[in-house]
Write a protein that binds this DNA or RNA. Structure first.
Length: 565
RNA sequence: CGGGGUGUAGCGCAGUCUGGUUAGCGCGCCUGCCUUGGGCGCAGGAGGCCGCCAGUUCGAAUCUGGCCACCCCGACCA
């Protein structure tokens, strides 16, 4: 591709609305442009990279035995009503009412559509297992799109859905996807960790996320040297050692006028937030329950829901809170409370703490769990954080940020049961299909790679995703010898099937070198009067400061060799 | 949805507080000359509903009100 014949609008300055590296560089290197919040136009260079990512994913899916199809973005609302997700997915759904008044959903995911396909056409165990996938644009009405293409309202996704006869078969499909995802990360040049994750709105039990560790990642992951790795939304925590109870003092009440937040109260009482016992009132399946966590911890609703075996769980309204505790929000406490009380194990481990007094403008101090209040259960119900211990080996976690690039789920019968997707087994007996689903964000592959491979000059492409393997920078194009040498090399490399970008623009060397660094192709070949005088062309890798002069006669072969290796 | 911020040429910004000729600067763009190994030089030029609507005023980029868009933090989240 000749630079003069394509469209690569590089920017000298950083755009004001991009402040993370990948977004900034994707704009500056001319990979894309924003159309509106959360929606981008991919320009030639960005599109080439996106297609590379897509092709890697496609090849690995095919290799893993998945079958490519293409489902529509437009989905009938009724299918979502059948699965029950019309409400659970809620406001994130992008909807459209057509001229007949029928509501269509712009698919954020395709469990319903694919399950509908399968229930109509898969009837026998002989057709199983089967795994359908597609690479398609998805829509989500994101509350806050951000970080360029890392969280957008419209994005390219590969979604695969396996249908299996039983758990053992699902395990095989799941394993095949797990391995495929690992290979995809490796081919794309992405550093990654696989973590246990929470399943959110998709459902199911076992699931893993493929994370690219990176400062701008939105997910927090707990890592342990023993190999345990989990999203902090999901990570179990090991029990903290109980504090030794040194001569407990008597419970007493302290006036705390207007102090309803952890920050206010801990400052006023001159104790650390970890000594405060935060009392949260929830409504589980219609009944109020108190959940106690340390002031420096966040309650993990998933853990609490699982512990309570509740179908629905939501934070109680102020009215319910004051009815249960007799106090306004901010002053709830466990002492004297007559609803079920679940304490986090970290709270149970406290020798003493401070809590709300169930009375406006008052807190209790020297509260001893078990002495001053009893509790229904003690469980791990807080979000894993710095200072927590690994549940597997007991050593402290390391907490890191990561970009969630892929997510694989064992769904079980969640959708097949709700939508009646069944098959007949060898005995002619009707069975419900078991499902798995496997998603990977194509745009995120590209952005995450850039986010983890750049320098102050620009992008440093890993070969797997690089739009071109080689950029020829031709200087002194008005010199016939230089022109001929550059053209010949371009032709020779192209004929060898190498992806070459030929910067044939008649611009000053500085601009061309800076652009070459910015767009960051793995190999740069400079052809100019000076290089010819030195005996040929200058070859330099983007990720190295060294360069060498290669004779014209062997240049094409040598460069081709370097690209392959 | 709560908090904060920004909208002036393709990009990056000044001007707004304190209203007053023709709205500036750098980069980019066009023409000519010059230059060719790290964002050259000289000369000439094009490009603006100053986010939108309404109001105040003799006069509004500037003051007032409403609206819209975008960004950041938080909440939320395959």
């Amino acid at each position: 591709m000749r630079w003069s014949q394509t469209f690569i609008p590089t920017l000298k300055e950083d755009p004001t609305d991009a402040d993370i590296t990948s977004h900034r560089l994707m704009m500056r290197a001319g990979l894309m442009r924003k159309v509106t919040s959360g929606a981008y136009t991919y320009l030639p260079l960005g599109l080439l990279a996106l297609r590379k990512a897509e092709q890697i994913v496609r090849e690995e899916m095919n290799r893993a035995g998945a079958i490519e199809i293409l489902m529509p973005s437009l989905q009938p609302e009724e299918l979502w009503a059948e699965s029950g997700r019309l409400t659970s997915f809620g406001p994130d759904l992008v909807k459209h009412v057509d001229r007949h008044g029928k509501t269509l959903i712009f698919g954020p995911t395709h469990e319903e559509v694919v399950t509908d396909l399968v229930r109509n056409h898969i009837n026998s165990y002989k057709q199983l297992p089967i795994n359908f996938y597609q690479i398609q644009t998805k829509f989500r009405d994101e509350v806050r799109p951000r970080f360029g293409v890392l969280r957008s309202k419209e994005f390219l996704m590969k979604d695969a859905y396996s249908f299996n006869r039983d758990e053992a078969s699902l395990e095989e499909s799941y394993r095949a996807m797990y391995d495929a995802y690992s290979r995809i990360c490796e081919r794309a040049g992405l550093p990654y960790v696989v973590v246990e994750a929470d399943s959110g709105a998709i459902g199911g039990s076992v699931n893993h996320e493929f994370m690219v560790p990176c400062e701008v990642g939105e997910a927090l992951i707990a890592l342990c040297s023993c190999g345990y790795a989990a999203n902090t939304e999901r990570a179990a925590t090991g029990p903290l050692p109980a504090e030794s109870a040194s001569a407990p003092r008597a419970l007493s009440t302290v006036d705390t006028p207007g102090m309803a937040t952890i920050k206010d109260v801990s400052a006023f009482l001159k104790i650390t937030p970890s000594r405060l016992i935060k009392t949260l009132i929830y409504v589980a399946d219609g009944k109020p329950v108190a959940a106690l966590v340390r002031g420096d911890h966040d309650l993990n609703e998933s853990k609490l829901r699982v512990h309570l075996s509740a179908d629905t769980l939501e934070l109680a309204s102020p009215a319910v809170i004051s009815e249960a505790t007799g106090a306004p929000v901010g002053f709830a406490g466990p002492v004297g409370l007559d609803i079920p009380i679940v304490v986090d194990r970290a709270v149970a481990a406290l020798a003493w703490g401070a809590t709300g007094a169930n009375k406006a403008d008052a807190h209790l101090v020297n509260v001893v769990p078990g002495r001053d209040f009893t509790f229904t259960a003690s469980a791990d119900i807080h979000v894993a954080t710095e200072g927590d211990l690994c549940p597997s080996c007991g050593k402290p976690f390391e907490i890191r940020r990561g970009i969630e690039m892929g997510h694989i789920f064992k769904l079980g019968a969640k959708y097949s049961k709700a939508m009646g997707a069944k098959f007949l087994d060898e005995n002619g007996k009707e069975q419900t299909l078991i499902m798995g689903c496997y998603g990977i964000g194509i745009n995120r592959i590209v952005a995450a790679m850039i986010e983890t491979s750049f320098d102050d000059k620009g992008i440093i492409w890993k070969a797997g995703l690089a739009p071109f393997q080689v950029e020829i920078v031709a200087l002194d194009l008005k010199d016939p010898d230089v022109k001929a040498a550059a053209e010949d090399l371009y032709k020779a490399l192209t004929e060898k099937g190498i992806e070459v970008l030929f910067d044939d623009r008649d611009l000053s060397p500085g601009i061309k070198f800076n652009d070459a660094d910015l767009i960051g192709m793995p190999l740069r070949v400079t052809v100019g009067k000076r290089s010819l005088k030195a005996g040929g062309v200058e070859v330099k890798a983007r990720n190295s400061a060294d360069s060498k002069v290669v004779p014209l006669a062997s240049a094409a072969a040598e460069i081709a060799q370097a690209v392959v290796s």
